[in-house]
Design a protein around this nucleic acid. Structure first.
Lengths: 153, 153
DNA sequence: TCGTCCTCGTTGCAGGTGCAATGAGGGCGC
DNA sequence: GCGCCCTCATTGCACCTGCAACGAGGACGA
């Protein structure tokens, strides 16, 4: 009645393992900034990019972020709207190209990041400690997976 | 005006890297079974567990799956409902404990898995090929991250 | 200047998600 | 048998998400 059906162990399936590891490692930090500041992961990603002293200019458009972060533009757009509503960032039409919306941290957003970034750095260090001597090879493997796949249109 | 603000590179942040890698590796496979069979990732996970010749018994409850897969029970429940509607699985009250819902593959579901599992195995092999000699260390690192964090209530 | 085509960002929609609440049922002491 | 408390699974709700469609604006040639 029941034909064989090949054996398959989900716990050994790399995409699944990555998904679980990503969820677990993200959640630990995400919970902190969710509970303390009401910030979600998409919002966090946007904030990080606004906190960086980008190449030349000091503001960033939605498209800039979309390109650098693995997020759809609608996701970026909505995260930005929430951040604006919360007073962490400001939107402004670009003077040169009025299709662009330039995003910038407000003072409040700046203060927020002054708190969040150290938390994130500390967490990264904790993860590295946890990986111990497997760190280098692990990150190298992650690089291979990330390099091969992101054709990035 | 603008206070320092520590430097932070999202691209080097492990939780972020994991999230992107997980998304990319999952999507490649997920697209296949989504387009060809209309199956989503949560549904796929449920199916995999039903395809396994579980310890003793041949059927599984929602709770069994919830424990083995990193998914909430509501997510499992809804995935199961969709699979039932699609005719891939059947639900039945457990004779002994009537609170339990026993899930089992239908013939159609069985046939589906006979197609899906080889695809997944081939994909896993492709990933392993891609990782090359970094494979063992990579998986070891993943193990460390997975071991340390899942307190699993 | 006008038309055409492209890009940027937002939004409508249908559907998925987490969380808390719910209801059905079981276990156990009295 | 009856309460009480626990477990299983489902569901209501508010929210988030991807995708496609949209409007506004820019680039460029005729």
């Amino acid at each position: 009645m029941t034909t064989p059906l090949p054996e398959f162990d989900l716990a050994g399936f790399t995409p699944y393992r990555l998904a679980v590891a990503a969820e677990k490692t993200s959640e630990a930090l995400a919970r902190q900034y969710r509970e303390r500041f009401g910030i979600s992961i998409p919002e966090w990603r946007v904030l990080v990019h606004l906190a960086q002293p980008l190449d030349g200019r000091s503001t960033v458009s939605v498209r800039d972020i979309e390109a650098r972060v693995a997020m759809e533009k609608s996701k970026v757009s909505r995260a930005a709207s929430r951040l604006e509503a919360a007073g962490y960032i400001e939107k402004a039409a670009d003077a040169g190209d009025r299709r662009l919306v330039r995003l910038a941290l407000t003072d409040k957003g700046h203060a927020l990041m002054a708190e969040l970034l150290p938390l994130a750095k500390a967490y990264q260090e904790e993860l590295e400690r946890r990986l111990g001597d497997a760190l280098a090879d692990f990150e190298a493997g992650l690089d291979r997976l990330l390099d091969t796949l992101p054709p990035k249109s």
